[in-house]
Design a protein around this nucleic acid. Structure first.
Length: 603
RNA sequence: GCGCCCGUAGCUCAACAGGAUAGAGCAUCCGCCUUCUAAGCGGACGGUUGCAGGUUCGAGCCCUGCCGGGCGCGCCA
């Protein structure tokens, strides 16, 4: 299944070869000037430079080679040597029929399937998800679906943050506040029996409330901090009372997390946590030591990851400036003998290598962690747990409020993800009612539709931006009646569905496509561009390329819908246009599904 | 201080490998519903791509230096 861009590219490459120019320069791209052409090749300019000839002469020679190709209606030379290609209507019609018959709606698969892990979401035990988790979930889910669709074997891992110092802090804080719980923990720790049903009084709301208090207290109160560290150490040796309480924390958190993820259409294949790789750490440290990678430094054990000559200047507390290696080393074992978060990340890479053997691990995590991942990745390469390039940090910017600062609630706190979803849903209901849409739907379907509109608004608003940059979160704009929004895309899909229902009722069948009108040309050319958009999104880890395609497709359809009446047309034209409409719907729903967006049937 | 990222229309964002006239949406203005869902379609207005140099036939994109913003900088994760 090849798109016109590739097919024409091969023809132009052959033409380049025929005149003695490097064939790879014959690459064809969609035209920058749709008024002049459908596709273009800029290769004559580069070839002229290499061969020391006039670019227009080369372009003319290439055009002569292409003359007579039945797929091309016109080949023209423009400007300094652009080769402009206009596709014949018959070739467009054939291509439309091919996409219509293709279960993948015109999309190719990768030549070599890889094993890929997408690490995203990053929820933590005892902390409800907040808006900061939204981007990781949205982008990661989309990448997971995209890679899987292209043919890779893909695993999505939530990489649950369920271990470490914060657990010790929380266990202490809960025991301080709830004597009944503390009594049970101590009884079990002492080797006795305890009624763990007492733990049921511990809710996620308690944990959410206690954690910031405990964290703050731990920073100023040394005794408090030491106790938390001791509990953490005891938990890590699975002291039974602490471990039982920790299990309660984990369970109560996971229920809430899965509810939030489910509401967003996000799901994971693995819920591996940091605790799962804890047993790997001691042997890993021994192995790193045996490989000679560990160095003692200020009482800690580190891996130096900077290469020869990589340095930076650093200001010391006394004001003097020294030159040190850069990046910083990976801190593997602290001076107190405990594992650090980088250690856990390294062990996770080792674990994944052992149980899955991935060719690629994609970390979908906030851009602010770029330095951290650079260090961990280098350490993993040095340790032989992965080879250069197999670990990719796909960083993204922050989500800001309309004031341009990191998103906060009106009260200045962090907005919980669940609250955000509810807020968005209620806005969706309101907007649907204002527009008089879905009035005749049964309540359950109306509610489901509102949910889909809400998710589409949130996700499309995020995914239309390139992941690397921060963006402004403005719910009113995302949920707007007009413009480049998720609801617009759903609306287009629903209009086609409605049309197809009517065609089915009237017994009108689809038939071969005949491209005639300009709007039909544009629609077919847009359908044809699907695979290129997928390829770009895949290669650059950039779902915005796919989001852009989905929007363009919707626009092209909407213009076609306005310009080309379907049900009133002549039978052959009607059949052709129905095929175009049905194919558009299929490709649009596929693209939206890869973005993690579901379409309702009616609205 | 050092490092990374960013600066594009009044606002929010795009721009495929360095290519032609830098594109969308919103906002503003003008048209289009007795015809398939008007959350739609057509049109207009809107730019010295932060500034100054450089490389190139050609620069929003590459290089250098400034200005402005965000983030990060081993014993939290």
């Amino acid at each position: 299944m090849s798109d016109l861009k590739s097919v024409l590219g091969e023809a132009v490459e052959a033409a380049f070869a025929a005149i003695g120019a490097p064939p790879e320069l014959g690459r064809v791209t969609p035209s920058d000037r749709p008024d002049l052409a459908d596709f273009q090749s800029n290769g004559a300019l580069a070839a002229a430079k290499r061969l020391g000839k006039n670019p227009r002469e080369i372009a003319t020679a290439v055009a002569d080679q292409l003359a007579g190709d039945p797929r091309l209606a016109a080949v023209e030379i423009a400007g300094p040597g652009f080769i402009n290609l206009k596709v014949a209507e018959a070739a467009l019609s054939d291509r439309a029929d091919a996409i219509a018959a293709d279960p993948r709606a015109g999309a190719a698969s990768v030549a070599h399937a890889r094993k890929v892990i997408v690490d995203y979401g990053g929820p933590n035990v005892a902390k409800p998800m907040h808006v900061g988790h939204l981007r990781a979930s949205i982008i990661g889910e989309s990448l997971k679906r995209l890679y899987r669709f292209r043919g890779d074997e893909v695993v999505g891992d939530a990489h649950f943050g369920d271990w470490g110092y914060q657990m010790g802090l929380l266990i202490g804080a809960v025991m301080d506040e709830k004597p009944a719980v503390a009594a049970v923990v101590e009884a079990i720790n002492a080797g006795g029996q305890g009624d763990v049903s007492a733990f049921e009084q511990v809710s996620l709301a308690d944990l959410d409330r206690l954690y910031p208090e405990a964290a703050a207290k731990g920073k100023t109160d040394t005794d408090y901090r030491d106790r938390a560290r001791k509990i953490t150490a005891a938990l890590q040796t699975k002291q039974p009372g602490y471990y039982a309480l920790w299990e309660r924390f984990r369970d109560v958190t996971r229920v809430a997390l899965e509810r939030d993820f489910h509401a967003l259409g996000v799901d994971f294949d693995w819920w591996k946590g940091e605790s799962d790789v804890e047993p790997l750490i001691p042997p890993m440290v021994a192995e790193l030591d045996a490989k000679g990678l560990l160095v003692d430094d200020q009482g800690a054990r580190i891996i130096r990851v900077a290469r020869e000559g990589e340095t930076k200047k650093k200001k010391l507390p006394d004001g003097s400036v020294v030159t040190v290696p850069s990046p910083d080393p990976l801190l593997v074992v602290s001076s107190e003998g405990s594992a650090m978060y980088g250690t856990t990340d390294l062990a996770t890479i080792l674990d994944r290598k052992q149980i899955f053997g991935p060719d690629l691990i994609i970390y979908c995590v906030d851009q602010r962690q770029a330095d951290h991942f650079e260090i961990v990745f280098r350490a993993a390469y040095l340790a032989g747990y992965a080879t250069e390039g197999q670990l990719q940090h796909i960083g993204f910017g922050t989500m800001n409020g309309t004031d341009g600062k990191p998103f906060k609630t009106r009260e200045g706190g962090v907005l919980k993800l669940n609250d955000l979803i509810e807020l968005t849903r209620s806005k969706a209901r309101e907007r649907l009612r204002e527009a008089g849409l879905g009035e005749n739907l049964p309540p359950e379907e109306f509610e489901a539709t509102a949910g889909k509109v809400a998710v589409a608004a949130l996700k499309f608003a995020d995914l239309q931006n390139f992941r690397g940059t921060s963006y402004v979160f403005d719910l009113d704009r995302f949920m707007s009646f007009e413009g480049k929004t998720g609801p617009y895309l759903l609306y287009q899909a629903v209009r086609v569905k409605s049309l197809l229902r009517r065609a089915a009722e009237e017994g009108v069948a689809q038939g071969p496509v005949t491209v005639a009108e300009p709007a039909e040309r544009d629609l077919v050319l847009t359908l044809d561009a699907f695979d290129a958009a997928l390829g770009e999104a895949y290669d650059r880890y950039a779902p915005n390329a796919l989001a852009e395609h989905a929007y363009r497709l919707s626009q092209a359809f909407s213009r076609f819908y306005a310009a080309c009446p379907i049900m009133q047309a002549e039978p052959a034209v009607k059949a052709s246009r129905l095929t175009l409409a049905a194919t558009t719907l299929r490709q649009l729903e596929l693209a939206l599904d890869l973005l993690g967006i579901a379409t309702p049937d009616r609205m």
